[in-house]
Design a protein around this nucleic acid. Sequence first.
DNA 1: GCCGTTTTCGGCCCGACTGTTTTCAGTCG
Length: 575
Amino acid sequence: MENGPDNGEVARIFARIAAVMEIQGENAFKIRAYRNAVDTLNHLDEPVTLMARENRLDTIPGFGDAIQAKTRDIIATGTTALYERLRDKVPAGVVDMLELPGLGAKTVKQLWETLQIDSVDALETAARAGRLTGIPGIGEKTVVKILEAIERGRRFANRVRIDEAIGIAAGLAGNLANDGGISVIEIAGAVRRREDSVNELDIVAVSESPEEAISRFAALPQAASVLSQSATESSITLHSGLKAHLTVAEPASFISAFAWKTGSASHWTELQNQAAKLGLDLTGKGLVRGGSLIPLETEEQLYSELGLPWITPELRQGNGEIAAALAGKLPNLITLSDIRGDVHAHTTASDGTASIAEMAKAARAFGYEYMAITDHSQSLAIAGGLSPDRLREHIRAIRDAQESAGIRIYAGSEVDIRADGSLDYDDELLKQLDIVIASAHMHNKQDRDTQTKRVIRAIENPYVDLVAHPTARLINRRDPFDIDIEAMISAAVRTGTALEINAAPERLDLSAEHARLAKDMGARIMIDTDAHSIANYQLMPYGINVARRAWLSASDVLNTLPVAEFEAWLFREKS
DNA sequence: GCCGTTTTCGGCCCGACTGTTTTCAGTCG
């Protein structure tokens, strides 16, 4: 294992530094420099500790002398002097309050200084007691918003996105595997099922000395406290608030323990019912026939003994997969290698970090046959959205890049859907694009009826090919906007407009549930990474996970088509 | 704090919405 803090831990310290500076009213650009560093660290595709050791920190964009030095401090000592200094000035609970959407630095500072509110809990108490309304700038609606934000924060608390969870689980398993007589160690649970986000990690191991494995688990550097412990099981809370469970199984019990801990609970119950029908008894200890354990080497064998084909963990949701398996009707699920193009990507023209040529080269390196450049439109000013003139220029640049690209490049745009459902460019300009992606980025708090009409109006524009991240949700941060999802899908089916599964782990939108509905209703689906950098193309597996949990096959997804067939759809008659 | 074919200082993506005001500050994307 790599020693020292991972990229996320370094990022977290910089994020706290930025937050405290914001509360103190520090220079906004200085704060942004730290926030940029946080963002960069979270998207870096190698360990920052490795880059530091090889004296390559100065190659990271946005890392000047000061941030490089602090990064080295954090790697060496776990902290940096500036952070320690700032931490003394502003209580951690005050910084936590900043996380609540709708509460900014100015308000937090005022609440802290005038009412001595120094935690989210204290804020809730004060809000319920009606003590906030005396503060200038805070009225009744703001109090309601604060309470809603606290409630939402609790719902999302101690959950981590799947991309982070995979890393954390691998770190725990890696640390544990070093010693303790462990011969087998696997990650199970929601991580193995590739849920969107998880609040618990499950690890299953075989060890010749279970007691030692259990005690080493509780003593891991990531562990904050022990929740419960027995001879073969241990539950701990990590510093991040996440729970983690270790099950140590006998070698003969490993397969059934692994399936048991992979779950889901309802899938496991159905498996047990299926076993009972066959006169077998299934527990986490093993599969028993007539009092004796059936030897199992693989999960395939376990399922086979139950008269079932092996069911991939993504399908183990208790959503009809056992019945489908018994009827021989499990779908032939899409895999990463089915994808032939990624048609949602940004460049430096708006808020991406790479050029057209660099993105094209990266997509080609993935073995794709086609890709699209789809930068933001004018309304999204913060992302450097393109004016009509800049888009025309950009289209020319994309056409020029085609010459030497070695991959088919489509000229496109991610066009904002305005509040009223009109698009951010006129039809005359949209007509010049190979692919038009319509996206809602703003105005996401409209009521259900208005929101539904808004998105449907965009879908009905004949030049729109795809609706990106159709519900605008952000995993663990923002709920989907209020929309009649069936009406939206119907409109997409009626007009032949595709719906996206956005593979970025902070979005995963459509969700698996909505994507399954879209498939059942006959909608066309695409899976895209929404890449803002070369590295982002690697996010495709997260979109594939969602598609698999939605029971999608390659034939349900447009960008599995070979280039000629994809173009037959893309350049269909539009009127 | 970062950055530089307008470079060692002086910029740094900005416009809209909301709730609170009565002309605007704070927050967001």
